[in-house]
């Protein structure tokens, strides 16, 4: 499509590259930016740049952070004997929202996916094994419920078990607060398989 302004067109194209944003949404965002006061746009632009400049990866858990080690790894209030392994920093945010989990994290940076060229060397496995020393009592595997997450879980289990640490995985099942009848069949099927003895 042709726009009357090259600058606008460039911005739309940049927005359209973002995940979940199509051309139409990109247009709307670009026009919104255009209407904002200049200082707000500068603030937004600076935020974008500083994300790249300031954020680093925690050398312990590989989550994104401003300080290394990150505030979770440094916190004396957290249980340092439990590590929850997740695929992406987003997953840490999700688990932190629960306010329930008090242990540490380990962000792998992905899951095993040969089709995407991701093998065991490309995710932070060696770093995880190095962390599991005598002090760590439990490793919780919280991968996504898909075939790649499953393979990653199997892979890590085989490496972690010989270290003498308790290895657990999060349950798959029905969303809390949802009606059973509205749960989709696939979830319900897996939930049945993972039923527990009372």
């Amino acid at each position: 499509m042709l726009y009357t302004s090259e600058a606008l067109q460039q911005l739309i194209e940049e927005f359209a590259q973002l995940p979940g944003i199509g051309t139409k949404s990109a247009q709307r965002l670009a026009l919104y930016v255009l209407k904002r006061p200049r200082e707000e746009v500068v603030k937004m632009a600076n935020a974008l740049v500083s994300v790249k400049d300031r954020i680093k990866y925690c050398s312990s858990c590989w989550n994104i952070t401003d300080v290394d080690p990150c505030i979770i790894c440094c916190s004396p209030k957290r249980e340092h004997e439990v590590i929850c392994v997740v695929e992406e920093p987003n997953d840490v945010l999700a688990l932190e929202r629960t306010n329930e989990y008090r242990g540490l994290y380990h962000v792998l940076g992905g899951s095993l996916s040969p089709l995407d060229g991701i093998g065991p060397e490309d995710i932070k496995v060696r770093e995880l094994l190095a962390r599991v020393n005598g002090k760590v009592k439990e490793v919780i595997l919280a991968m996504n419920p898909n075939v790649e997450g499953e393979a990653t879980t199997i892979y890590l289990t085989r490496l972690l078990k010989p270290l003498g640490v308790k290895v657990t995985r999060i349950a798959r099942g029905i969303p809390v607060g949802g009606d059973l009848e509205f749960a989709d069949d696939a979830t319900l099927t897996r939930a049945l398989e993972g039923r527990e003895i009372l």
């Binding site: 040969p114 089709l115 319900l188």
Partner: peptide, 24 residues
């Protein structure tokens, strides 16, 4: 059976990944 259909989809996913490893 939905359970079968789910298994089949996941099996196909595993197969694609595994074939890539073998091809490489």
């Amino acid at each position: 059976s939905t359970a079968y259909f789910v298994d089949l989809q996941e099996y196909r996913g595993v197969l694609r990944q595994r074939n890539k490893i073998l091809l490489d």
